[in-house]
């Protein structure tokens, strides 16, 4: 009797981090040191709401970071990144799925040296029951719609009005013109 309970206890309490979520994953590698393909089912949640109970409507209407509450083990996975190699996060990609049960595919980052745990790069998403995946790559289109005044050549981050204003004010290093000038001289002359 006691042995059976201990076995049950072990099964229930074992960290499911040991679970392999790579089965069936079609995630593309980014050749990152600590990446592991991970495909799993989850609910899309507002992280601040889940952590503290501060819960506005619609997951904060795009202001807040969104998380993935994994169905298999209740672990809160933090999607840091969408699938674009362009300094772009995942909240925009997950926002249409706020509160929904979804399946996601991407790369998990688990690096004990940096205490990286349950950090995720999401590459595609689909509502549970749907056949069709949605690629997690619409951030730059979303940005372009919000910033028609910044239309032009080159990547968004060279044209972003807020970033450009900060660079104009305090330079690429944040220390001002003098520090930048010395660095630019060292880099390019």
């Amino acid at each position: 009797m006691m042995k059976r309970f201990l076995a049950l206890l072990f099964c229930l309490a074992s960290p499911l981090a040991a679970q392999d979520f790579s089965e069936g994953s079609e995630a593309k590698t980014w050749n990152l040191y600590a990446e592991v393909p991970a495909r799993f089912e989850a609910q899309v949640v507002d992280i601040l709401c889940t952590i503290t109970g501060d819960c506005p409507d619609n997951c904060g209407d795009g202001r807040r970071q969104l998380g993935l509450l994994r169905s298999a083990d209740g672990v809160l996975v933090y999607p840091n990144k969408n699938s674009q190699p362009a300094f772009t996060g995942a909240a925009v990609e997950l926002r249409p799925f706020c509160g929904q049960d979804v399946e996601v595919d991407g790369l998990m980052i688990e690096d004990p040296d940096l205490a990286a745990k349950n950090i995720y790069l999401v590459q595609k998403i689909r509502t549970m029951g749907s056949e069709d995946w949605v690629k997690a790559n619409r951030w730059t289109k979303d940005w372009a719609k919000k910033h028609p005044e910044a239309k032009g050549k080159g990547p968004w981050f060279r044209r972003d009005p807020r970033v450009s204003a900060y660079i104009a004010e305090s330079g690429y290093t944040g220390l001002g013109e003098e520090a930048d000038a010395a660095l630019i001289k060292e880099l390019f002359e």
Partner: peptide, 8 residues
């Protein structure tokens, strides 16, 4: 760039 891009 990352902060403006919505990276945590």
């Amino acid at each position: 760039w990352c902060s403006a891009g919505g990276i945590p």
